[in-house]
């Protein structure tokens, strides 16, 4: 069974790095670089997990997550959020918006992999 991850990130180099890592782990990686239509893309792609950047063109990752959680069946979709701003307020906002895991850039590859594995495992069990 293939596991699908949707990576929403506007930095091409970061997108490439994560794609590399997760593909090797056996994930099917889809990517998107815009905030504006991110919710529609997620709904259409039906991923097992979403990796979401905060500073996206058009619409912030926070708003994307908030809107996503309002959709049916999307309340429990694991969402791993990445941000380069790293202020404590952002973590708070993300938690209020319904994030599953929040990580600050720059991250170590193993951290990202562990987070993705954990989130997926939790989602599969329940």
């Amino acid at each position: 069974m293939s596991r699908k991850v949707l990576l929403i990130e506007d930095e091409p180099n970061i997108t490439e790095a994560i794609r590399f890592l997760l593909t090797r782990e056996g994930w099917q990686v889809e990517t998107h670089a815009e905030g504006t239509d991110a919710v529609q893309v997620i709904l259409a792609a039906e991923p097992d997990l979403v990796i979401l950047d905060v500073m996206l063109p058009g619409k912030s990752g926070m708003d994307v997550l908030r809107d996503l959680r309002e959709h049916e069946n999307m309340a429990r979709l694991p969402v791993l959020m990445l941000t380069a701003r790293g202020q404590s307020r952002d973590r708070e906002m993300a938690e209020n918006a319904g994030v599953s895991r929040f990580m600050t850039k720059p991250f170590s590859n193993s951290e990202v992999l562990t987070a993705v594995r954990d989130l997926h495992a939790q989602a599969s069990q329940s």
């Binding site: 180099n13 970061i14 994560i18 380069a84 701003r85 790293g86 600050t104």
Partner: peptide, 24 residues
């Protein structure tokens, strides 16, 4: 916040790819 973002973004790529090169 902006400066942090602007600094962290390239650093993220640098760290990610250097780890890839080291570990793979």
């Amino acid at each position: 916040g902006q400066v942090s973002h602007e600094l962290r973004t390239p650093m993220t790529s640098i760290r990610a790819f250097s780890e890839i090169m080291r570990d793979t």
